[in-house]
Design a protein around this nucleic acid. Structure first.
Lengths: 107, 107
DNA sequence: AATTCATATGATTTGTAATTCATATGAACG
DNA sequence: CGTTCATATGAATTACAAATCATATGAATT
């Protein structure tokens, strides 16, 4: 009945592994091995997660020889997280005091 | 490491049941029984889901006698879904042709 | 073309979260 | 104050998605 695009969209982001990948890629593109190493992820775990993110167009793949470099499509992620930041700050700032989210521009 | 506010936020929305509730409440406030009946939800299922939505401040509760009326906090949901609509339309319009999402303003 | 390196894929296992079932709370009303 | 109606809560079950493990693909290199 309801369009399941929303479900797919949210489900893809509702997980620490993928959020950590997004966080890491916000600093620059990486190939699968680099990313696996940095996050201590099994190779296939990284692959599966990256595929899911790519399917929803949250990340972009670029082949370079045997390697595949993944980079963040910031046009969707940044605005979304911005809205959430505002919402969370409005209601949860008293018990969620984490700072230094890299992609969040402090003004 | 990463702030888990995002995870909680997305996880709460990454489910058909809750998205259907949001869709329904976008048309106006309802109490638990009304909502259960409309969505063919077990009473406790509705309760549990509504509680989760209320915990994240996606819905607002108001008591009226024995009943509790839930309404949608549109200030966060509408902009978020707007961003997703744009993203989905950009990349998925060829295979997701659902129309008439009630809260989406067509211009 | 055989080998190695980088990544993807598929099936099974595992972990987690939603639903259900049973029960508790709590307001209204006789 | 006992009963009924509306909702909430907690524990057990169930369902589903992520991680793992084994294997496949595919490009570079000799």
């Amino acid at each position: 009945m309801i369009c399941n695009s929303y479900e797919r969209f949210f489900k893809t982001l509702a997980e620490p592994a993928k959020l950590n990948i997004i966080n890491l890629l916000s600093k620059g593109p990486l190939n699968v091995s680099q990313l696996s190493k940095k996050l201590n992820f099994e190779q296939s775990r990284a692959s599966h997660n990256l595929k899911a993110l790519a399917d929803r167009h949250f990340v972009i793949v670029e082949r370079k020889g045997k390697e595949r470099y993944y980079s963040l499509d910031k046009t969707i992620i940044i605005p979304i997280l911005g809205l959430i930041d505002a919402h969370v700050e409005k209601y949860e700032k008293h018990y969620c005091k984490c700072k230094g989210i890299p992609w969040r521009k402090k003004e």
